[in-house]
Simulated assay, not measured.
Amino acid sequence: MTLVYLRKGETYAELGAGFAVSTTTAWRYINETVDVLAAHAPKLGAALAKAVKDGLPYLLLDGTLVSIDRVAADRPYYSGKHRRHGMNLQVIAAPDGSLLWVSGPLRGSVHDLAAARIWGVVRALAATGLPVLADKAYQGAGPHILTPYKGRDKPEPQKDANRAHARLRGPGERANAQLKSWRILRKLRCCPHRAGRLAKAIHTLQLRETASR
């Protein structure tokens, strides 16, 4: 039932009808299972320690917005960057785009750099000694987080550096795409603050699937 909920994003009423249980029972079963799965998702420190142990040459940091069902009056949830309401999640990925860690949720109005600092990501990444590639939203995070050069009419060496940066950072989008391939995260119609739990539960399932191959 929980897999159907996460994969297809069906409502509790639809799931209850399909599995011959009440809507309330479907809600309880799913939320309890999601909480258990989320609790098994990698913690930030453990995920970064494994990245160092595995000899990863660098890491990818990005933010993603999980859209939510909100009205214009709910300004704290509105992301100016994405121009829609949602919850901000921070994602750390390996160079090949494999998801290593996903944060809890913050309101969409919180900028990516602020979110990374709130979750202690900037400090934790610095402690690994690994270079980190991120987009312009993270400029000013520190020398260990490499972002593209800003400004117009950049000299050719900076343009070349930005192109190389984009090529290396491109696979990071795969981590976000992996999360969004589960329909429940395409647009939440439950409590917005469940976004992090749902993302962590999905991460746990992805890790189990990878381990079983």
Rank of each mutant, 00 (worst) to 15 (best):
A161V: 00
N88E: 06
R208A: 15
A177D: 07
A26Y: 06
R70N: 00
K200A: 13
K187S: 11
K136D: 11
G18D: 12
P76V: 09
E10T: 03
A94H: 10
W182C: 09
V52M: 05
K187H: 07
K43S: 13
E32F: 07
L198H: 01
I118V: 09
P148M: 02
G55L: 13
K180W: 00
A46C: 02
D74Y: 04
A211L: 15
P42C: 11
P76L: 03
A114D: 12
A195F: 12
Q178K: 13
P155Y: 11
R186D: 11
K159A: 12
E156Q: 05
A39W: 00
T210E: 15
W182H: 15
R117W: 03
S109Y: 10
G120C: 10
P131C: 03
I92Q: 06
E32R: 14
L37D: 02
R163Y: 09
A211Q: 14
K150F: 05
G9Y: 07
K81T: 11
E10L: 15
A73C: 06
T24A: 15
A177F: 02
R194K: 12
K180Y: 00
E209G: 13
K150H: 08
R75S: 10
K150V: 07
G9D: 04
T33W: 07
H40W: 07
H40F: 04
L100S: 06
A115I: 12
V36S: 01
L207W: 06
R169Q: 04
R169D: 06
G142I: 11
L99C: 09
E156G: 00
R186P: 05
L125R: 00
R28C: 01
Q139G: 15
T25E: 08
V34E: 01
L60G: 04
G63I: 04
R174N: 10
D35F: 02
T210L: 15
N176V: 13
E173C: 02
R183P: 05
L113F: 08
Q178S: 14
A211T: 12
L113T: 05
G120H: 08
V66H: 01
A49C: 02
A141Q: 10
V91P: 00
D112A: 13
D69I: 06
N162T: 08
S109A: 12
A164R: 09
Y29T: 04
D69Q: 13
A141M: 06
H111W: 01
A39I: 03
Q139Y: 08
H85R: 03
A116I: 07
L168A: 14
D35R: 15
Q206F: 06
D96M: 02
G196Y: 03
S109P: 01
G97A: 10
K43V: 09
Q206G: 15
R167V: 03
V132K: 03
A126L: 11
R84A: 05
A115Q: 10
G45D: 14
L168P: 02
H111V: 03
H111S: 07
A161F: 06
Q178H: 14
G129E: 04
V21S: 01
P42H: 05
A72V: 14
R70T: 00
V110K: 03
A134T: 04
Y12R: 07
W101P: 10
K8V: 08
L37N: 01
